[in-house]
Amino acid sequence: MAGLGPLPYAEVTDDGYAARAAETFTAREFGPAVLLSGDCPRCRHPITVPVVDEVYRHEAAGAGDDPGYRTLLCTCEADHPARPAGLSGCGAYWTLLLEVDR
């Protein structure tokens, strides 16, 4: 795909985005959050997405009802034509099921 220029900004999702992220992202604890890191499944630029620890607090009131699904957004800093001012990323989003080993 060399020579095609940067991927334009578009708020889109695809069933394959979540599958690619689930296979390739890494997770690490960082204070009260978990950092998910990997390449955006759409534009392939590196991103790191913090997920607050309340996702993992099953003992918190009402948290037992939380199935653990979280929508993630591309937050890359690469240039994507037509990206609205003040935003980052390529516009891609996807939903992952986050589970904790206990």
Score class of each variant (00 low, 15 high):
D15W: 03
V34S: 06
C74E: 11
L87M: 09
D65N: 05
G64I: 02
G68F: 07
C90R: 01
G31W: 03
Y93E: 00
G68D: 08
T24M: 01
I47R: 03
F30K: 13
E77P: 01
D15M: 09
A10L: 13
A10K: 08
D101M: 06
A78D: 05
P6M: 12
L7I: 02
A18T: 01
L35I: 13
L4C: 10
T24W: 01
L4V: 04
G16D: 14
A10R: 11
E54S: 15
L96V: 15
G68C: 02
G38S: 03
A33M: 07
P6Q: 14
A10N: 14
G38W: 00
G31H: 01
Y56R: 06
P84C: 06
C74L: 14
L73H: 12
Y93S: 13
W94C: 04
A63W: 07
T48W: 05
G5P: 04
C90F: 02
L72S: 03
T13P: 09
V55S: 13
L96S: 13
G68V: 02
P8T: 03
A21W: 03
V55M: 09
E23F: 07
G5L: 06
G5T: 00
P50C: 15
G31Y: 01
Y69A: 12
R57Y: 06
V100T: 13
E23W: 07
P32V: 09
A63R: 06
G64W: 04
L97I: 11
T95P: 01
D53C: 04
C74G: 14
F25A: 06
E11L: 14
E29Q: 15
G89T: 10
V52P: 03
L35C: 03
T26P: 04
G91T: 00
G3N: 01
D65P: 00
V55Q: 11
P50M: 15
G16Y: 02
P81V: 11
V49W: 09
C74Y: 03
A61F: 03
A18S: 05
A22Y: 02
S37V: 04
G5I: 00
V34P: 04
G3D: 05
V49P: 01
T26N: 03
H58D: 12
T75I: 10
V49Q: 10
A21Q: 02
P6Y: 10
A19M: 07
G31C: 00
P8S: 10
R102N: 08
E23C: 06
Y9L: 10
Y17I: 04
G89L: 04
P6D: 15
I47H: 00
H80A: 05
V49G: 07
E59N: 13
L73Q: 11
